[in-house]
Nucleic acid binder design. Structure first.
Lengths: 221, 221
DNA sequence: TAGATTGTTAATCGATTAACAATC
DNA sequence: TAGATTGTTAATCGATTAACAATC
C-alpha cells in the first residue's frame, strides 16, 4: 500500500477525549441531520473553535455552511468508544453497591453486560441479584475464560481490593473499574479507572468552604 | 491591620486541587513525623517539583533537609477540604444506588452525614434503609430547614433528575451530587458534581479499543 | 455570487518541569 | 561545615483561543 502513510500513533489528548464523550452524549439526544460546531459548543458549554479542533481528531469532516453530519459523527464516536461492541464484565463484591450496579439500567446503552457476580461470603453464594446468582470466588477463572471477560468491577471493602485486583489480573483481566478508595497496584498493561466517591465529595465540600469564606470576606469588606 | 495584605483571592488550580486530595489521602495512611516532597511524589506517582509547587498554595512550609510536618500538612488539608466539619446531606431516590450510598461507610471519614432519604414512591415511604426511614417529598422543605442541609444527592431515574434538582435548589440547596447521567441546569451559585458512571465506562472501553488496535497493528507491522 | 461555516495556522494562556540559590 | 531539601524563578511544554483563508 504505497503512498498512504497510515502508521501514526494519533493519541487523543485526555481533555479532548472527555469533551468527545460530551459530544457523543449530545448527539444521542438530538434529531436533526446536521449540526454546526457552534451549536455543539453552545449545548455542551464550550466554544466553536474548540469543537472544531476536537473534531479534527476524527475522520468525519464538516461541510462549510452546513455543519457536521450528525449520524456520521455519532457513528464514529460510537466506534471510538466501542459502544456498539458488547463487552462482557464481571463484578466482585455483592454488597449494596454491587447490587446497584448489577441493576443499573444504563450499562446496556453502552454495550456493557455483567455476566457474573462473585463474593467470598458463603452465606451469599447462591442468592440472586436480579437474574444473576452470586458465585464463589473459585468459579472466577472458569467464568473469565468461558465468556472471555476483559473487564472486572471491584466493589468489595477497601482492604480486600488489592487482593481481588491481583486475582483478576492473574486471570487475564485487562481493565479494572475500581469502586473502592484503595489505590490498586497493577501491571502496566492493565488499565484502572477509579470511581472514588470520597474524592468527589471532597470537591463538593471544598466548594462549600470556599463559598463560605467568600461570604465572610464580603461581609467584612 | 496595616502592612499585611490578606485580601488575595488565591484560587487553587483544578489539577493542583486534585493532587492535593491525593496527598491528603496519603498523609492519612502514613505514620512518620516528616515527609519529603520526593517521598510524597513517589508514592502518589508525580515528581518532587510538582509536589513542592502544589504545596506553595498552602500555609504549611517545609524544612530543608527534613521535609514537611505530616501532622501539620494533614490538618491544613483537612481544613481546606472541610473534612472535619460535619456536613449534613439529604439523598433523593431510595433505589439500589441510594441504598448503597446510605450504607457507604466511607462518608463518615469525610464528615458527611446523610440525615434523610426521600422518594416519591408511596410504597417505599416508611420503609427503612439502615436506620433512616424513607420520607415523602413533601417533607423535604422541612428537613432541609431543620438540619440546615446544604448538599443534596440525586440518585433518581434520569428523567426525574432535573425536576428533583429544581426542588432542591428552590429549597436552598447549594451543592448537588448528581448520580444520574442527566445534565442539570442550575443557578450559578449552585455547584454540581457529576458522578456519571457511563462516562467512566466509556474511558475504559476506549482504552480497550486502543489496545486491540495497537495489537493488530503490531501483528501487521 | 454572497455569506456562513469549516479547517488550520499562529498567538496566547496556563500548567509542568528544570534549575538553582537559600537554608536548616 | 557539608549535604540534603526546600522555595522560587525561568524555561518548556501542551492545550486553548483567535484569526483567517478555503470552500460549499
Amino acid at each position: 500500500m504505497p503512498g498512504q502513510q497510515d502508521k501514526e500513533p494519533i493519541v487523543i489528548p485526555k481533555p479532548t477525549l472527555d469533551r468527545l464523550k460530551l459530544y457523543h452524549r449530545l448527539l444521542n439526544e438530538i434529531e436533526q441531520k446536521y449540526i454546526s460546531s457552534d451549536e455543539i459548543a453552545q449545548r455542551v458549554g464550550t466554544n466553536a473553535e474548540q469543537v472544531r479542533k476536537d473534531l479534527t481528531y476524527l475522520k468525519t469532516t464538516g461541510k462549510p455552511k452546513v455543519g457536521y453530519d450528525v449520524a456520521q459523527l455519532r457513528q464514529e464516536l460510537e466506534e471510538l468508544f466501542g459502544v456498539k461492541k458488547t463487552t462482557k464484565v464481571i463484578l466482585v463484591g455483592a454488597g449494596h453497591l454491587g447490587s446497584a450496579l448489577v441493576n443499573y439500567p444504563g450499562f446496556a446503552n453502552y454495550g456493557i453486560e455483567i455476566v457474573a457476580v462473585f463474593d467470598n461470603d458463603p452465606r451469599k453464594i447462591g442468592m440472586f441479584i436480579g437474574e444473576l446468582s452470586i458465585l464463589p470466588m473459585k468459579d472466577l477463572a472458569r467464568v473469565i475464560k468461558r465468556f472471555r471477560v476483559e473487564i472486572g468491577i471491584i466493589c468489595v471493602p477497601k482492604d480486600s481490593a488489592q487482593q481481588v485486583a491481583d486475582i483478576l489480573v492473574s486471570n487475564g483481566i485487562k481493565g479494572i473499574w475500581n469502586f473502592t478508595p484503595a489505590r490498586l497496584v497493577v501491571p502496566d498493561d492493565v488499565f484502572v479507572v477509579d470511581e472514588d466517591m470520597s474524592q468527589s465529595l471532597l470537591t463538593l465540600k471544598h466548594f462549600l468552604e470556599m463559598k463560605k469564606q467568600k461570604m465572610q470576606e464580603s461581609q467584612r469588606g
